[in-house]
Design a protein around this nucleic acid. Structure first.
Lengths: 209, 209
DNA sequence: TACTGATGTGTACAAGTGTTCACTAATGTG
DNA sequence: CACATTAGTGAACACTTGTACACATCAGTA
């Protein structure tokens, strides 16, 4: 009666990861999810879980990898759309927020994982953020903005930028996805944060340590 | 045999809250704690839980209140010790980090709660942060630094400062409490973030929106 | 074709879960 | 002192949980 075989290789694996993500998207915290709960949501028998993951932490780690792909896609889109340097901040923040809206569960998972239960997941997400910050620094170097900054200072600036944007996640994710007014407020505030940071960076030489 | 009566009123209540906090301090996530687990850690029978809390979310909310007290104590200490404005940042960051060390579990709970499961806890912590930021703005007004900033811009600056410091929590809490070198690194980095922000604020008028 | 490995299913079990209930003892109030 | 309130206890409930085992089915390969 019911197909006992997979349609495609890794199909169940994806179903399980999507199921966990869906539960997170519904407001649950990843740390509170159980194997049975996830398999139930995925429409799969509990035993199947072990065919793909050793435990929930393992699943979390693989979610981090997928999160990395999402972030890279976002970065690529930003690079393609942000052409003139003067609109850099507004455009980038806009892209970030639209991605956060379209991949709500992923970004919720990211926000949770930063202070999550699994040390490995935590480190994975922090590593993604570091990578993101260093890529941002490279882009800024290429664009020749902030040429007066030393490499270390530029890295620090980008680190702060990425952190500020990441913190905005907690703003976006508490407002309902349809509340466009609130979303616009967050967008504006985040952009002003970044402007403030870049103004600081522009005058940073005046306070060289 | 065993005392069936409380020694002091609210003793068990405190034991339960401390127990939850202790588990969080051991690396567990608050969202994954169960009633039985907490009562076990507190050395109390499960039924006792309901004498003081309706559920775990309720306990979380009351922890937020206590967290508020911790933060206020920290603020008071900062106000007492930060006298000359030129050492403001370094001293404040130092006080923050020493408090984070001495109340590790509390700050872990805070970091977790920002993206936690309970909407109420989340909102409670965000509210504490807002309060903290507005108090900081008042202090800066009193100190007459940043007189050129409008009220709104000063509020924004302080908001960003508080966020940046809060994000540093995720740095502090992953390093082991004894690792003084790493702690020093975080201290320095956080201080430089704030310096960068204040340099930005100092020149903010040059980009009035 | 026969074998092997990967992926799926159903059953089972011991342990842990939240919550209710009836009971007991100390405390504060009239 | 009598009495209502509060805060503690233990036993019991109906579920849920993680995990193990035996088995079934397909894909690929020799």
């Amino acid at each position: 009666m019911a197909d006992k075989q997979r349609r495609k290789p890794g199909e169940t694996r994806e179903k399980l990861m999507s199921a966990a993500l869906a539960l997170v998207g519904k407001g649950r915290h990843f740390a509170s999810l159980g194997i049975r709960e996830v398999t139930r949501q995925a429409g799969v028998v509990p035993t199947s879980f072990y065919r793909h993951f050793r435990n929930m932490d393992d699943l979390g780690l693989q979610l981090v990898d997928e999160l990395g792909l999402v972030l890279r896609r976002m970065m690529r889109e930003a690079r393609a759309n942000v052409l003139q340097a003067d609109k850099l901040i507004d455009e980038s923040v806009g892209i970030f927020i639209s991605h956060a809206r379209n991949n709500r569960s992923f970004f919720m998972f990211m926000a949770q994982g930063l202070a999550g239960e699994s040390r490995a997941v935590q480190e994975g997400i922090r590593s993604e953020m570091r990578y993101f910050a260093s890529e941002l620094a490279n882009d800024l170097r290429r664009l020749k903005v902030a040429d007066h900054l030393s490499d270390a200072d530029l890295d620090m600036t980008c680190d702060l930028v990425v952190r500020s944007v990441a913190f905005s996640l907690t703003d976006i994710l508490v407002i309902s996805p349809e509340d466009e007014y609130q979303e616009e407020q967050v967008r504006k505030r985040t952009a002003r944060f970044l402007q403030l940071i870049f103004v600081g960076a522009a005058h940073w030489n005046s306070r060289p340590e």
